[in-house]
Write a protein that binds this DNA or RNA. Structure first.
Lengths: 196, 196, 196, 196
DNA sequence: AATGAATGAGGGTTCATTCAT
DNA sequence: GATGAATGAACCCTCATTCAT
């Protein structure tokens, strides 16, 4: 890639980052092209030189976001720490980007892209499912996960907890409950006392 | 309340219902005053006669929605069914209004709610916390809930599951997992097998 | 029609007239909604309250124009004057509206509306063809038109001459040639000399 | 002209051709500099290196077009065919370039032409008037044209017919009427019957 | 009290043109 | 001389809100 190309890519990245940060904070509909332009220090038209229209821009922001988020996730899954520590990290550690997701952004991501046959669906299935599968396999092997429970249900649980906990309006309220929530995740609301 | 008053209240209710139904389906930003007016069979100005501006209208819609949702919840909590059945109902039965909440609506609700010191938080705390407390107490008394786990954590768990499951993009995918998810909720990911 | 309706119709007419006059002078594409609004002394949005979008506005302007132009034409055809005088009037007298048609306007009219099955095509066929037929019949009966020549060809000739002569860039140049052109129309380029 | 000059001229011609073909198809206002650049395989800025601005470009395209069209016309006028055949060819044969002129292009051409004192009018007067004069002279000498009718009127008639017939929306409808129209052109609407 | 009419502000988008390399 | 990148101005259109009746 020559200098021209590199500078072009850099500017495109600037716009993507500006857009993402605004989307995450205010949602998508509330953010105007003009605001993104201002934040990225370019003119509105420059944005249109890089992205066909707002929809395309949103799309590429999504992809950029997903890629980064998956990277975060992968690091945790392959880290050299115990299974419960991985779970805690996934649930309670905010990734660099994944923190402060504006709900509308999240919703857009999900709604627009559960439509099958697009890059986001594709990359998500291709990359996260295997990571989850590995993680759960590890959990089952080490006796942390009931082998009779389907992987799907476990995945659903982890994803739900992760997303919910990391919501802006939830995170702070949940931190004091970290231990209890982890306990419920592993032992259920009945707890271990019923064993004896 | 005289006839005038009653008719006035009825019209206000019409507007609220129209607005709510549109908000739930399309989100808040996408719904214009003009559309609400059309659906409620009144002029736009009439809406302004009853509500100061769009923000006020949204707020009152929220309150109306919360009231209705809490009623649904109360019915379930005080119903004459077993504790696990109550939990399943809460988690998987869509309430009459609470089904198909457009995410943006939900997010708006939460944002308003988290801003402390407003009616929505007030009413929520006043009315749902006691219901949750009763429910959890019942669960603990009947041995379904570990007495060592804090009520807050249990509440968090129930709310999270309820909200997440009833999301439009989640509900259908989760239905086949009903049993597994309920199992995890009660016994955790470790399951009962570890007891023996 | 009550007062409200009447005022509404009047304002709509104001907008139509403003738009028409601008379209005729500058063409359609060059005229912005904002300019029409200024000329009609209303805000841009008011125009949108009366017409769905620019396309619809153009459409209604066309219809308004056609209606008026056909009225002009009908008056001439049914007037109490001789056949040659009718022809001269049609060819050289500018109707109140039909003068100074900007070519782009005319082209739009024709291109957009030779698409069959719309109001303009419909009204045109329904109203002008009979008028033309009457006119030509009169000409044939009075010996001014060769009965062996098809009505279509005569119609084509009259329309062509009328449209061409009344073009802005042509009219003034053609006026001094009125007699010659009329002569050619009746006797052809060979003239009467061939008779002897 | 050295190699540099020649290549420069070639590139300029490429741009002119690209612009002309787009103008003829879509009209002038609808065609953007960017589209012309794409079609001519040059950058937008290159166009500005050759032509001051869009207006200048349009003007030079006009001149290029006029030149070509006049060449076509000259070929017909000096061809070795009879006078009536020349007339028919002029009226009904579409020249290579002159066919399918987008009306807006034509109108622009005329507007520019009528604005006195510009190259387009100059070239037109200088080159076509003599050709027309020759043609009409030939017609008069051979008895096809009434010598008492002014050349101006004849010219007007021919130009009108040519332009009108070759309009996109007219041409196909007129073809079946070729004989009748030619007849009217030569003998007028009264036809030959008046001779007897 | 209720409404039809009207609007200022702003949004996405396009285009002719200029800047910088 | 040629180009990719950048932009100010303008356009069509929508919306929450106010005016006038």
């Amino acid at each position: 890639m020559d200098g021209f190309q590199r500078r072009r890519e850099q500017k495109k990245l600037d716009i993507l980052k500006a857009a993402l940060s605004l989307f995450l904070e205010y949602g998508i509909q509330k953010v105007s092209i003009s605001e993104i332009a201002k934040k990225a220090n370019v003119s509105q038209v420059t944005i249109y030189n890089y992205f066909e229209n707002k929809h395309t821009l949103i799309n590429e922001v999504m992809i950029y976001f997903i890629d980064t988020a998956i990277n975060d996730f992968q690091k945790t899954v392959t880290a050299n720490i115990s299974f419960p520590e991985k779970i805690k990290t996934i649930l309670f550690n905010k990734g660099e980007i994944a923190n402060q997701i504006h709900e509308e952004f999240y919703q857009y991501l999900m709604n627009e892209y559960t439509t099958e046959g697009n890059y986001i669906e594709e990359i998500y299935v291709k990359k996260t499912i295997p990571l989850f599968t590995d993680l759960i396999k590890e959990g089952k092997e080490q006796g942390y996960v009931d082998p009779n429970t389907s992987d799907e249900a476990i995945m659903f649980y982890i994803k739900m907890l992760k997303e919910y906990i990391q919501r802006d309006d939830v995170y702070s309220k949940v931190l004091p409950l970290t231990e209890d929530i982890t306990k419920i995740f592993f032992y259920g609301i009945m707890g271990q006392n019923i064993k004896e």
